[in-house]
Amino acid sequence: MTVDPSPGHTEVLSFLEPLNVALEPALAGLHARLARDAQLTHTLDIAYRTVDSPVGKLLLAATDRGIIRVAFELENHDSVLQLLADTVSPRILEAPSRLDDAARELEEYFAGTRRDFDLILDFRLSRGFRLNVLRHLPRIPYGNTASYAQVAQAAGSPNAVRAVGTACATNPLPVIVPCHRVVKSDGSFGGYLGGPEAKRALLTLEAAA
């Protein structure tokens, strides 16, 4: 005799086994359809996708206002999505089409054929001085660097060098908003969300192109 508390359950599931026919391909198609329908009915608050890059897999997320987040693998994509669910909206789906332009521009950037990004960004994750700093960063030209002190000065608060460091370290839109171009006054790289190797790779890429 079996000790299974519900001996009938396994048996019934075996009766219903045919319901599993081609379940996975059906679900893949249904997911794509859901992403499309959600987009059309404006129920998708955040669409995301991942792209491969020389600095690892990047997560790209966009609201209907623009790109809200770029994240390195090092940041843990699941945690990043959970944080977006907590702070913006849990209506999140993997829906690549909203990020087609971003994916293409990033691909061109990593191929060395693009110097500036022409994308609409949603800066709602940043506020105050940090937002000031982020808005200033694209003014550092491709292939150049600026020190934290220079950025502090340019952002109108010459004494806020440390705050510039924080703004860069919490940049929700790395690569696109080029915080990797901000380095220490002595020329050393300083920290980076994607790890020091990613920062080195980006600066090397820009120097070579």
């Binding site: 999505l81 849990p90 789906l93 993997e94």
Partner: peptide
């Protein structure tokens, strides 16, 4: 907190 809806689809869709 609540999971991203994507996780709901992946976990319960089948």
């Amino acid at each position: 907190s609540k999971k991203p809806f994507e996780a709901v689809v992946r976990e319960r869709g089948a």
